[in-house]
Design a protein around this nucleic acid. Structure first.
Lengths: 148, 148
DNA sequence: TATTGTTATACTCTATAACTATA
DNA sequence: TATAGTTATAGAGTATAACAATA
């Protein structure tokens, strides 16, 4: 009985991830961004001009991948490559005005989405749902640590 | 105040989707499958031998994409291409024993994951969480319809 | 010797257009 | 004429290995 409900819940959770992903990437596409490139922009928005090596570590991705992502962001005018002031090996990736505006748009878009999703919820329900997500998050983290 | 909680909740939901995706694909990778190829196998498990055209419609993907996915599944021994008995244009994609076993494994793996995630939850909490997900699902569907 | 970022290469997924064989 | 599946081509993301320049 409870197992059926658990399976249903997982199904719903998976369906939510699908739709959430679709919604996010439709917003990104409208701004000429992809998910990975938006991730780079997001890190830049929080840390300011950043080394590609730092970006690779922050996004847990190979340095070569950052090269490609930054190539794309430079081509679309979201970002520039500047020489590092003290380390001549490194380059600093810096958002342009256009890129900073896009990053700000994404943040406000996420706030708007949060509002749309949870607007009609009375506080207790929202808090309970949030707690539930927290438990799921912890469990998933433990599971992933076990596997690795 | 409530807006902050909403934003936090969305953040947690996004974090859950990330970890869930990581967990799923680690299981898939262990079986030599990718997400899309597992989707093909899943459809085959439910419908039996299937035309590539039908697969493309079921997965909402271009026919050319199915060609690639089936190529991969044939190479990994999960699937065979058989001539269609009456329509010589079409090919029937059929799971091998290995493919059928992998599909069954994925189903039981998902049940196991559901158990691990929600095992310790008392029924009321699980039902409430499930209802919350349902609301989120409905809202997301309306949002996506608006956009398109 | 270690690190930064590159080129080279390869694999997966997706998509469009043009084409062949068949219905 | 329409359909099934293909080749051709392209772009996105990821990954490994080898390498140049610099620390």
């Amino acid at each position: 009985m409870s197992e059926d409900v658990a399976a249903e819940t997982l199904d719903r959770l998976l369906a939510v991830t699908l739709l959430l992903g679709a919604d996010m990437s439709s917003h990104l596409g409208a701004r000429g961004l992809t998910e990975s490139r938006a991730g780079v922009l997001h890190v830049l928005g929080q840390s300011g001009p950043t080394t590609q090596r730092t970006l690779a570590d922050a996004l847990d991705v190979a340095p070569r991948t950052i090269t490609g992502l930054v190539d794309g962001l430079v081509a679309s005018g979201h970002v520039t490559r500047e020489p590092h002031p003290t380390d001549r090996r490194a380059t600093l990736v810096t958002p342009t005005e256009h890129g900073a505006a896009a990053a700000a748009d994404l943040v406000s878009g996420r706030l708007e989405l949060a509002g749309q999703l949870f607007a009609g919820w009375w506080p207790d329900r929202l808090v309970a749902f949030n707690d539930g997500l927290d438990v799921v998050l912890d469990t998933l983290q433990s599971l992933l640590e076990e596997e690795s």
